[in-house]
Design a protein around this nucleic acid. Structure first.
Lengths: 215, 215, 215, 215
DNA sequence: AATGAATGAGCGTTCATTCAT
DNA sequence: TATGAATGAACGCTCATTCAT
């Protein structure tokens, strides 16, 4: 996390640095990202950079933190009393919020996705060392309660399914990756509904309904 | 793609270069991979390298091509008369073959996974620009026929579902990444079955069977 | 030497700065030592540092001075009426006191030794430019009087011998540098006795005693 | 040690690099020595430097090696059949040769002395890891044989004395460090004789001779 | 065809010191 | 008096690529 010196900076300067860093990490992988470029685009000296941050990792984690914090403000409303609502409703709301976040902060989404994608990178492993469960835990909890309530099949592998549900939300955005389209959000929302339908009912013809029909 | 000079090389020399490149890309990201090291481990000169390949990208794509070609030899048998067999059987066979390939060529798998992971990397975008459809096309064809045969619900969005099926099989590998070498294949096969069950039947309780029970 | 501003400081603050500087110079060579770290560990500001000291050299010399002053308090008692005691007794007492000082102030010893080691370093040359005589003067005086009293051979080169005696006592420390903390002082005291025996009687067999024996 | 690429260089270029490195290490400590400066003064590019040498340490050890090799050519003649000659004669010859070397290669001496002085430096420890004994071993062997032959007192501590004798040769040069003087070599030779006399006979009056006088 | 020496920009990081407040 | 932000040169080292031979 940034040193005090950074927090003491004037807001404008701070924002310019953050802006430069976001722009850098949006464009480049952590390893390819260049402190030099951040410094240039910030209009600060290299020496100053290292008075604000310990090292490249420091500013990277700082940006990641901003992203996570921001994303949380979008998602947490969907997680109010999650067990009072049907499973798929909660999941859909959560992902809709995530998509809204992606739409409004496409650069954050790009950085976040890049981070989540390279699961073998030292920095990913370090961050996730203690926290990996956290991400999928929400899904695990929801699944367990949903099973108890009879909303979900009893015979599924909860951790595995949680992992897959979690993966889906980030995979989905790769389907219509061109965020510049106006209709992106609408498309994604539609895709989300399709996906949830898929997850809920499967690909096989719905005997249930077929059955009802024949009745 | 390699220049003619490369293809004119003696097989042994060619293999040594390929081996060195595989070893490099297996260990490092494309950006971190070093032509210097490849050259060193190949026992060829720097100058020669640039007479065989245009640049780093050239040899990388060449290796990727080898991997894809190899993987094809595993998968195509599962695609013999694909329309004569039930949809999920074909998909399972295909993915089982893919897993078998991964088991027998772990280095290829590592390179392939790394490539698939950073979907924002210029080189990924370039490769996928013309080729992504190819990968999902198989799924699309299979889905269409399965729908016709009544194996799959009529109301799904075919391209979207194809994309998701494709994504999921690659995501699966990220679950249980801390595999013990021995159990890996078994674990993955089991995961595959879980995944296909999920895709086939969905998460909701199977009314069909419940219904049958009560009858 | 520190500016007046430093001397005007509250004792506690002064000590904290001194402590930080000692810790730094104990751990690092003069060139590797970092004003940044001293400032950090002092809890003072960079600006303040340069209001107390001219530069890095200034604080280094100040610390050296503290060390020398402290060492003097150990050694001077051994130099009370030095001419009333046998030469080697005085030399031994002096060096024993020096060893005692080293034992009780290992950090000072480390700084001092490091300083004495690089005799080509600009800062060493600068310090020694005017002060080297001082260090060897004691030995010179002692030697001269010892010669007069007949304790020491008349035909030696006094300045040269003084220089060697001085050098040897600092070299001694480099023997058995892998001291176990506990036994260090005992070992060094033993080494000192060996060294003085060497200096007193030389390496050649003692004809004197042989002679006496045969008489 | 340098890579083959360095050895393949034209002699003139090689010499220019060696010259630049010697000049650098003569002037600066290993840590302060700058690859940049070496490169500048060599007239080669930074990239080239790292094609010739692994790193700064590599070229440093290479220079050290040159120095040791050169010094050996001076000293080994004095070590022909060392046990056939009186102990102090061998030691004197050896040190005279060392002084001659120092006179003719003052820059080498400076580098060598600097290296020997900082006995806590990682690079010193690394080099000396297996080789420290070597330096003092010569003295130990000589001492042992001299004791057997009765040239040296039986009651000395051999390793300790060997260490001190070894130290002396490097300490001696610090007495008259100003090498620019014409008379330096003569002065040093004289100092050497004084030192050996000291080591041989000690500082105490020679009773043997006194005895003889009174007889 | 094959070589491998040469390049120079670039990397992340540290530094002692200055100076406006 | 005290501050601490700002600086920019310097560090060791790696890189993909070029080009004369």
């Amino acid at each position: 996390m940034p040193k005090e010196t950074f927090h003491n900076l004037q807001e404008a300067k701070k924002q310019k640095i953050i802006e430069a860093a976001i722009s850098e990490f949006e464009t480049y992988h952590y390893d390819q990202a260049s402190v030099n470029r951040i410094v240039e685009n910030s209009g600060i000296s290299k020496g100053s950079f290292y008075q604000y941050f310990d090292d490249k990792k420091d500013i990277y984690l700082y940006i990641l933190n901003i992203i996570v914090t921001k994303k949380m403000t979008y998602i947490t409303p969907a997680l109010q009393n999650p067990f009072d609502h049907p499973f798929f409703e909660v999941v859909r709301d959560m992902n809709r919020c995530g998509l809204q976040f992606a739409k409004e902060h496409p650069r954050f989404m790009r950085i976040g996705n890049r981070f989540l994608q390279d699961k073998t990178h030292p920095i990913f492993l370090e961050v996730m060392a203690g926290n990996e469960k956290i991400a999928t835990d929400v899904y695990e909890q929801l699944l367990k309660r949903a099973i108890e309530k009879g909303d979900i099949r009893k015979d599924i592998d909860v951790p595995f399914t949680a992992h897959m549900l979690f993966s889906l939300s980030s995979q989905m955005v790769t389907f219509n990756a061109n965020m510049t389209q106006d209709a992106w959000l609408d498309n994604m929302m539609a895709s989300l509904d399709k996906l949830l339908d898929l997850m809920a009912n499967g690909l096989k013809p719905q005997d249930k309904e077929d059955h009802n029909d024949t009745c």
